[in-house]
Write a protein that binds this DNA or RNA. Structure first.
Length: 287
DNA sequence: CTCTACTCCTGTTGGC
DNA sequence: TGCCAACAGGAGTAGA
């Protein structure tokens, strides 16, 4: 579910509750998500201070004062939400108010400041791991990731270099996290529509001028989505529980049979399946 | 190396 | 109302 804009929105929402604060109590309510949790995860987290929350691709990294970093991935349906951040003082009451734990609340952090951070993930495609902060970049899940699309390394030049000779459809190639990290099904569809590139085009056959537009539109759509707090279709929520609202700005995603929003275009949005996933596009203005 | 199909899991939706 | 298939924002892995 969550692509780069959703993960960045969650990171920003968690920061006020977590950064600079110790995890007073970490509760791990099941042994695994997609993979088993690391050994003694709850003990290694309890008492640790979160020095910094950062993001790499669709991963959140919490750098701890213990010398370790907590790696978090939300998978398809993962949520991290904060409660009790601005809890009012209640005389005679020690604990802040938090909602009752719900189904699929797998990991809970009670922060020393009183906030509670809850990781909820019905499908359990999410993941958590702990590793030394110094070697975090070489973690198996991070080592092969391509550049951040909003960073300086990403450019049309980079796209041209990596797409040269590739015969696979551009849609599938942009979903490959080794090419560029952080895009998912929604934002690939949206960026290709904005760049007027057909999702079935071979990656290596896209003209340099088109790649200029594509690189620009990838950055723009991600930035706009971050500003909107991400896209909420089903599970995704911001850290405060609110919906994102970029879904109202989709031009093609989940808009099959609707008119193409490109000015002057009379096309209709179509849906096809590529490598098992839905692609939405306009066959009239995407070539 | 490149590419596709399959897999993990739960929940929701749409057709009959 | 019930049943069942299709589908969902990810991504590692096996195999062609």
């Amino acid at each position: 579910m969550p692509e780069l804009p959703e993960v960045e929105t969650v990171r920003r929402g968690l920061a006020p509750a977590m950064e600079g604060q110790r995890i007073a109590l970490a509760e791990v309510r099941r042994p695994d998500l997609r993979w088993p949790f690391p050994e003694r995860m709850a003990e290694r987290l309890t008492g640790a201070r979160v020095d910094r929350l950062r993001r790499r691709s669709k991963y959140i990294l919490a750098d701890l004062d213990t010398g370790e970093s907590l790696l978090i991935h939300l998978g398809m349906s993962g949520r991290m939400t904060v409660s009790g951040l601005a809890a009012p003082y209640v005389p005679g009451q020690f604990h802040h108010q938090h909602p009752m734990p719900e189904k699929h609340d797998h990991v809970v952090f009670d922060m020393e400041g009183g906030a509670r951070v809850t990781f909820n993930d019905p499908r359990r495609f999410g993941a958590m791991d702990l590793m030394p902060t110094a070697t975090a970049d070489s973690h198996p899940l991070l080592a092969a990731l391509g550049p951040e699309p909003l960073g300086n390394e990403f450019s049309a030049d980079l796209l041209a270099l990596k797409l040269a000779g590739r015969k696979g459809p551009i849609k599938a190639l942009l979903l490959d996290q080794k090419l560029v990290a952080g895009l998912g099904n929604i934002y690939v569809c949206e960026a290709l529509h904005r760049a007027h590139i057909h999702p079935e085009r071979a990656g290596g056959k896209i003209a340099r001028a088109e790649l200029d537009v594509l690189a620009t539109e990838i950055r723009l759509v991600l930035q706009e989505a971050i500003e909107a707090g991400g896209s909420s279709l089903r599970d995704y929520r911001q850290a405060d529980g609110e919906l994102g609202y970029f879904q109202h700005s989709f031009r093609v995603y989940d808009r099959e049979t609707q008119p193409c929003p490109t000015p002057g275009c009379t096309g209709t949005i179509a849906r096809i399946v590529q490598s098992g996933r839905s692609s939405y596009y306009c066959s009239r203005c995407q070539r």
